Simulated scan of single mutants.
Amino acid sequence: MKKRQIELAVISDVHLGTYGCHADELLTYLSSINPKTLILNGDIIDMWQFSKHYFPASHLRVLRKIIGMAANGTEVYYITGNHDEMMRKFSGASLGNIHIRDKLILDLDGKKAWFFHGDVFDISIQNAKWLAKIGAYGYDLLIVLNKLINWGLLKMGKEKYSLSKKIKNNVKGAVKFVRNFEDTAKELAIANEHDYVVCGHIHHPKKEIFENEKGRCTYLNSGDWVENLTALEYTFKRWKIYRYNADKLSPFFVDEALKAMDIHELIATITTNIPKDKKNKKAKKAPKKEKKGSQKGNAVL
Rank of each mutant, 00 (worst) to 15 (best):
M1C: 13
R4Q: 15
Q5N: 15
L16Y: 02
E25S: 10
L26N: 00
P35C: 06
K36V: 05
I39M: 02
I44T: 09
F50S: 13
F55G: 01
L60T: 01
V62Q: 03
L63K: 05
K65L: 02
I66M: 01
G68H: 04
A70Y: 01
N72F: 08
I79A: 13
T80W: 10
D84G: 05
I98W: 03
R101A: 11
L104Y: 05
K111R: 13
H117A: 06
F121Q: 11
Q126G: 14
Q126D: 15
A128H: 15
L131G: 09
K155V: 02
E159G: 04
K160D: 08
Y161I: 06
S164P: 00
K168L: 03
N170R: 14
V178R: 14
R179V: 11
F181K: 10
E182M: 03
D195R: 09
Y196C: 11
G200T: 04
G200D: 03
K207N: 12
K207T: 13
E208S: 13
W239I: 04
I241C: 08
Y244Q: 05
S250H: 07
F252V: 07
L258N: 01
I270D: 00
T272E: 12
K276P: 04
K279R: 09
A283G: 14
K285I: 04
K291I: 11
V300G: 06
